[in-house]
């Protein structure tokens, strides 16, 4: 029984790790300026975690193989204590894991800080994002470069007034451009402001390595720079109700020239 356990544990560990190592299922290619650092942080963690995982499972398997009773007869070999007792365990765990924590924290904090603790670069394109049950809408300032003021009491899906604009009195609102696809220029930073209309939602673009919750009552800033033109998915990752699984939008990264043409071709909201 002990040998079987050892074989099964070893097989599980090796098959699991192989599928990780072969990248059979893996992250889609990164299309952002900051994502490379997240990926290398993930890879570094993967290597360390993989080694710890295999080492622990193999040690368990080897000891169970070596020190397990066989064939229903009571073992008679002398019982031995682990050399050095508990002390090496404490030392190994504290030093190994401690160093790993230190490295991961120092490197990881920088990656985190570059996205979440620094302001967007100057000249970033400002886009408002509104999340509601169960869609995203995006707003560009329009010709006047100014965003109309948001009035919750004016918000109406029936009128297609998703952002609650008041074009009757607010002239800056009339030329705002509201679309259901997030179109961004490549290699130019975009600064988003995340508005939640009803409940919690989340902004997740796998390829751009970016995720951030929308919280009702808060306007949350988020910035990133996409590098590769293409069409990607933006999905909601915070449970928001029955249509959560179908809450998505597409992100289109265009060359700056194409982006300029696209923006010019858009109709104002009112």
């Amino acid at each position: 029984m002990g040998r079987l356990f050892a074989v099964v544990v070893t097989a599980i560990a090796l098959v699991s790790v192989t599928l990780f190592a072969l990248h059979t299922w893996w992250l889609p290619p990164d299309i952002s300026t900051h994502g490379g650092r997240i990926d290398s942080q993930l890879n570094e963690t993967m290597i360390v975690a993989g080694i710890l995982f295999v080492a622990a499972q193999l040690a368990l398997g080897v000891f169970v193989w070596r020190f397990g009773e066989r064939g229903g007869t009571r073992a008679t070999w002398p019982v031995r204590i682990f050399p050095g007792g508990a002390t090496p365990m404490v030392v190994i765990a504290t030093v190994l894991v401690g160093i790993e924590i230190l490295v991961l924290t120092l490197v990881g904090s920088k990656v985190w800080a570059s996205v979440y603790q620094s302001p967007p670069p100057p000249g970033a394109l400002q886009i408002d994002v509104l999340a509601e049950q169960f869609a995203f809408y995006f707003r560009y300032a329009g010709a006047d470069g100014k965003f109309g003021v948001i009035h919750p009491e004016k918000m109406s899906d029936a009128d297609q007034n998703f952002f609650g604009l008041d074009p009757a009195t607010d002239t800056t609102a009339r030329d705002d451009i509201v679309v259901a696809t997030l179109v961004v220029p490549a290699n130019q930073p975009v600064a988003l402001r995340l508005h939640a209309k009803d409940v919690n939602h989340s902004f997740y673009v796998r390829e751009a390595r970016i995720q951030q919750d929308f919280v009702p009552g808060m306007v949350i800033p988020l910035h990133f720079t996409a590098t590769t033109p293409g069409r990607y998915e933006l999905v909601c990752t915070q449970l928001c109700g029955l249509g959560h699984y179908n809450m998505r939008a597409y992100v289109e990264v265009k060359s700056p020239a194409e982006f300029g043409q696209w923006l010019k071709a858009q109709q104002p909201a009112f």
């Binding site: 169960f134 899906d157 029936a158």
Partner: peptide, 8 residues
């Protein structure tokens, strides 16, 4: 009548 999955 509205559909929340398709707010339009």
């Amino acid at each position: 009548v509205k559909c929340n999955v398709h707010p339009w």
